[in-house]
Computed example of a mutant assay.
Amino acid sequence: MRYLVLAVAALFAALAPNSASAYWEYGHESVAEIAYRNVTPQTRAAIDRLLRRADLLDTPECPARTVASAAVWPDCIKKLGERFSYSFAWHYQDIDVCKPFDPKSACANGNCVTAQIRRDMRLLQDTSVPLRERVQALAFLIHFVGDLHQPLHVGEHHDMGGNAVHTNYGAYAPDRLNLHSVWDGYLAERAISTPPSPIRHYSDAEKARIAAGDIDDWARQSWEISRDSVYPTALGGSPCDLGKDAARDGHLDNDEIAKLVPIARRQVIRGGLRLAKLLDKALG
């Protein structure tokens, strides 16, 4: 069994994107599918109408005709170089977990994930905006709500959202593995694939409870998870006790991973239902 686990992990590593800037495909697609199943029929029809015009984006290398493909479009376009380089900083909001929660200082000139979610909402709500811009705003919104719920896209400590924290993932410990990639991919994939599937229709009561609050509340929640769970589990204590330039070496054994799976799973569900809430508001 151990050899099977290692083989599967190696396969994931070979297939994973080189960039560690956002959830890998499975995480983003799952958030999008949860949202799509939980919006109103009117919203779903509006989503479909917009995505049928994804050809306006003029990115044949990066299709966006379904919610799943639209969810990964903002990562796919990174490989197109300068054309979309202006959007690279929109995927995260680096708020130091060792200081008071301060989203404004981590969002220079609106170049952060929470500001862009709000911008995309405004573009979608304004039917006078050119259709191409509304299609692009929809793809960005679907993706960025997923990013917001990956804790290391919000909370960090002088380490590029955990990218500079070297760690293992159970028995899997390649040299290039870091804490960010664990939460982007390996942990998210285990959390989503563990039965029962989180991709389903949720009751009105569940939606109301899980999607309560606003964008800043959701950002704070991700930041708190980074501060209270992500870093302490990997580092064996608070990152605040380490110097700014200290070497960062983490460790995640199987027991620790098992404790993190429910947290990662909740974040995917929260992302999906909160995205549904925003889509209903913008398009319903």
Score class of each variant (00 low, 15 high):
79 K>E: 14
206 E>I: 00
226 S>Y: 03
224 E>V: 11
7 A>G: 13
46 A>G: 01
107 C>H: 04
188 A>Y: 08
171 A>C: 08
235 L>S: 07
169 Y>H: 02
279 L>W: 04
281 K>E: 15
53 R>I: 02
163 N>A: 14
170 G>N: 07
176 R>L: 10
283 L>E: 10
175 D>I: 04
48 D>P: 06
96 D>W: 11
25 E>R: 14
142 I>M: 04
134 R>D: 07
43 T>I: 07
100 P>T: 01
129 V>T: 13
260 L>Q: 04
219 A>G: 10
98 C>S: 06
221 Q>S: 11
218 W>E: 14
159 D>P: 09
158 H>D: 15
54 A>N: 15
78 K>I: 05
56 L>R: 02
108 A>R: 10
216 D>M: 13
228 D>F: 05
81 G>Q: 08
13 A>T: 05
64 A>D: 12
208 A>G: 14
53 R>C: 11
71 A>C: 01
4 L>Y: 08
79 K>V: 04
91 H>W: 04
205 A>D: 14
213 G>L: 01
32 A>Q: 05
150 Q>F: 04
29 E>D: 04
136 Q>T: 05
103 P>Y: 02
253 D>V: 01
278 L>E: 09
36 Y>A: 09
244 K>S: 04
65 R>H: 14
162 G>N: 06
156 E>M: 14
76 C>M: 00
125 Q>D: 03
262 P>W: 06
104 K>C: 03
260 L>K: 04
26 Y>R: 15
59 T>L: 07
119 R>A: 10
41 P>R: 02
166 H>E: 12
120 D>M: 11
277 K>D: 12
215 I>K: 00
141 L>Q: 04
57 L>S: 00
58 D>L: 06
223 W>Q: 11
84 F>R: 00
206 E>W: 07
39 V>G: 02
226 S>A: 15
236 G>N: 05
258 A>D: 15
84 F>K: 00
141 L>F: 08
110 G>W: 11
52 R>N: 10
33 E>W: 05
111 N>D: 13
174 P>V: 01
263 I>W: 03
3 Y>N: 15
150 Q>G: 08
43 T>R: 01
89 A>M: 15
203 S>P: 12
132 R>V: 10
81 G>P: 09
239 P>H: 01
125 Q>Y: 01
267 Q>F: 09
41 P>Q: 05
84 F>P: 03
239 P>V: 00
251 H>D: 09
149 H>L: 12
65 R>L: 03
227 R>S: 09
236 G>I: 00
138 L>I: 08
19 S>R: 12
142 I>Y: 12
80 L>C: 08
208 A>F: 02
37 R>C: 03
221 Q>F: 09
17 P>A: 12
135 V>D: 11
140 F>Y: 13
164 A>K: 13
214 D>G: 11
47 I>Y: 07
10 A>W: 15
73 W>C: 10
267 Q>V: 00
85 S>F: 10
190 R>T: 10
17 P>I: 10
131 L>F: 07
271 G>V: 02
103 P>M: 01
164 A>N: 14
279 L>C: 07
159 D>N: 15
250 G>S: 07
255 D>R: 07
45 A>S: 10
24 W>Y: 13
268 V>F: 00
187 L>S: 03
125 Q>R: 12
228 D>S: 11
119 R>V: 05
11 L>R: 15
87 S>E: 13
102 D>R: 07
163 N>T: 13
26 Y>W: 13
241 D>T: 11
149 H>K: 00
269 I>P: 01
56 L>Y: 11
52 R>Y: 10
176 R>S: 12
199 I>W: 10
160 M>C: 12
10 A>N: 15
